[in-house]
Simulated scan of single mutants.
Amino acid sequence: MPRFAANLSMMFTEVPFLDRFAAAADCGFEAVEYLFPYDHAAEVVAERLGTAGLAQALFNMPPGDWIAGERGLAALPGRQVEFQQALEMAIAYARVIGTPHLHMIAGIAPATDPKAIATYRDNLKRATDRTGEAGIGLVIEPINGRDMPGYFLSDFNQALDFIAEMDAPHLKLQFDIYHRQILHGDVIMGLRACAALIGHIQIASVPDRHEPLTGELDDRKIFAEIDAIGYQGYVGCEYRPALGTREGLSWMAMV
């Protein structure tokens, strides 16, 4: 059975962010992930994590101006200095909080634009080198255009090509089952094909992004396949509870 990590950006939103660590532990989670910790001092986040007895699974690098619609800086020409600053901030937080993985978010840019491709490649190389020096894993994630229109990295094959180019053992694929189904389908075969390169997995039902077992996929078979491919990491529960977080957790007893 996979080990699940609560996504504190989507779950337990009934309470303030720093209180979600204890709420997740109270509900039996052993690990957490979230989009960003940067609204709080790294030491404060680490203290809440430790007090709750939780492991940290993953968080994202700073996204740029999220409120204005930015979704990462890596593929944005002319923003390399900001990207470098975001990378260093993420590494500093990762060292204090103790995350095994950082997710490098790509940003909104045309996937076929040569300048965006070159910028992304250069920034990925920079991030791969720096996280390698810091002993931190790096993941990249294809995201579907329905949830995030215009996102640069929206194809699993393209992500795998970038990973192959970098040829670094700590650079891996973030395999989000929800995004995979919307982008390509063929989830189980995708898991098998990508198994050696998967650094992190996330789950939500399709199409509504609610609790597992409530959508079009057979999540029990998917969980069995995650075990079968030998994945040892956490599966992030990156879903929006349909009614309330605690009310929706009954699915965990059914898998």
Rank of each mutant, 00 (worst) to 15 (best):
A5P: 06
L138Q: 05
F162Y: 15
P241M: 07
E216V: 11
L102R: 04
E211V: 02
G53M: 08
A224L: 12
R130D: 13
N123Y: 03
H179E: 11
L138C: 09
G132T: 11
R126L: 15
L8R: 02
E141L: 07
H200K: 09
R71N: 02
Y151K: 02
T99M: 03
M89S: 14
L173P: 00
E133I: 15
Q85M: 14
Y234D: 05
I222G: 00
A111P: 07
L213D: 01
F36V: 10
L49C: 09
I188W: 04
P100C: 06
A68C: 08
D208T: 12
L73T: 00
R79H: 07
R3G: 04
D176Q: 06
D129P: 02
D122R: 14
D186Y: 11
A111T: 14
G185I: 10
P241D: 07
L58N: 01
E165C: 09
G248Q: 09
F29K: 01
F59M: 08
A23R: 10
A168R: 10
I163E: 05
G244N: 15
P169N: 08
Q174E: 11
A90L: 07
L49Q: 05
C27E: 14
P114F: 03
E82C: 10
E30V: 09
V139M: 06
T128H: 07
G135C: 11
I222C: 01
G28C: 09
R146M: 12
L243C: 14
A228T: 14
H40A: 07
A41Y: 10
C194D: 10
G230N: 12
I140T: 02
R121M: 13
L183M: 15
A134F: 10
T112D: 15
D155S: 07
T51R: 14
A22R: 12
Y120T: 01
A92R: 14
A6N: 04
L173W: 05
A109M: 08
D218V: 06
I143R: 00
R71V: 00
R71A: 01
L138R: 03
W66P: 01
I117P: 05
M11K: 05
A92S: 15
R192G: 09
T112E: 13
E211Q: 06
A196N: 11
R126P: 01
P2W: 04
D113A: 11
W251M: 02
H200G: 01
Y93D: 02
G244H: 14
H210S: 04
I222T: 06
D129Q: 13
G145Y: 08
A164R: 15
M61E: 04
D147C: 00
E47T: 12
A204W: 00
W66I: 10
G98D: 10
Y120A: 00
P149L: 07
D161S: 13
V45L: 02
A118C: 12
A159L: 11
Y234F: 14
A90M: 07
R192M: 12
V187W: 00
Y231P: 05
A164K: 14
